[in-house]
Computed example of a mutant assay.
Amino acid sequence: MSEDFRGEYYQKVDSKARVSIPAAFRRVLDAGDPSSSDTSRTRIVMVYGGKSRQYVECYTVRDADLLAERVRALDIGSKARQIAERDLITRSLTIEIDENGRIVLPQKVRDKIAFDDGDETAFAGTLDRFQIWKRDTYDAVNGSLDDEDDELPEGMDVLALLSRAKPAANSGA
């Protein structure tokens, strides 16, 4: 079983701000919550900080702990640590997935992504975390599949970007 978040999914939100987590994402979240075996509900850590972000980033409990370790490694009192603590730790929420595989989008999350009643979400897998966007914003930012090659030099395949990358252990954020 892969422990990566992959793919993009569009999900409707009901009138109570509940949205279903894609089943493939739920399996990764289950595997990444060591204490979920003690409770009946898997937890998810939602990070809504970051001024320029138009999405909320979601982590397994395990990967959120790894993210916190990276923040802890910064010098206490440094500007970088202050910003990281504010945007990645303070501006985060831990919520539970209900027995039907849904979460309630907290008000701070809805505010962050400019979500209004009747909007649809986009869940975007990014390996060790996933993003939740307002669908209209996601589509506007990410464009169509035809636009993706515009960022690569003419004739270059996207796999060429990986030619010098070294595989790393799943290191979280």
Score class of each variant (00 low, 15 high):
1 M>I: 05
11 Q>N: 14
13 V>W: 10
15 S>F: 14
16 K>S: 07
16 K>M: 02
16 K>F: 04
17 A>V: 13
17 A>M: 15
17 A>Q: 13
18 R>A: 12
19 V>Y: 11
21 I>V: 15
21 I>Q: 13
23 A>N: 03
25 F>Y: 04
25 F>E: 06
27 R>Q: 15
27 R>T: 13
31 A>T: 03
31 A>Y: 09
33 D>I: 04
34 P>A: 06
38 D>C: 11
39 T>A: 12
44 I>R: 00
45 V>N: 01
47 V>C: 02
49 G>E: 01
49 G>A: 01
51 K>Q: 11
55 Y>G: 00
56 V>T: 06
56 V>E: 00
58 C>L: 04
58 C>Y: 00
62 R>W: 00
62 R>L: 10
63 D>E: 12
64 A>F: 08
64 A>C: 05
65 D>I: 03
65 D>G: 10
67 L>P: 08
67 L>R: 10
68 A>P: 01
74 L>M: 13
75 D>T: 15
77 G>P: 02
79 K>F: 14
79 K>V: 15
81 R>I: 02
84 A>D: 09
85 E>I: 15
87 D>K: 08
89 I>A: 09
92 S>E: 02
96 E>R: 14
97 I>E: 04
97 I>G: 01
99 E>A: 15
101 G>M: 04
101 G>F: 06
101 G>D: 04
102 R>C: 04
102 R>K: 08
105 L>V: 04
106 P>H: 07
106 P>W: 13
109 V>Q: 01
109 V>E: 00
109 V>F: 01
111 D>M: 07
112 K>R: 14
113 I>Q: 08
114 A>Y: 06
116 D>E: 14
117 D>K: 09
118 G>L: 03
120 E>P: 00
120 E>R: 11
121 T>S: 10
122 A>K: 08
125 G>C: 01
125 G>H: 02
130 F>H: 05
130 F>M: 06
132 I>V: 12
132 I>W: 07
133 W>K: 08
134 K>F: 09
135 R>T: 03
135 R>D: 12
135 R>S: 07
139 D>R: 11
139 D>S: 11
139 D>I: 12
141 V>T: 13
141 V>A: 11
144 S>N: 05
145 L>P: 02
146 D>W: 12
147 D>F: 04
149 D>E: 06
157 D>W: 07
158 V>H: 06
159 L>G: 15
160 A>I: 00
161 L>T: 04
163 S>G: 10
165 A>V: 09
167 P>N: 11
167 P>I: 03
169 A>H: 10
171 S>N: 11
172 G>P: 03
172 G>E: 09
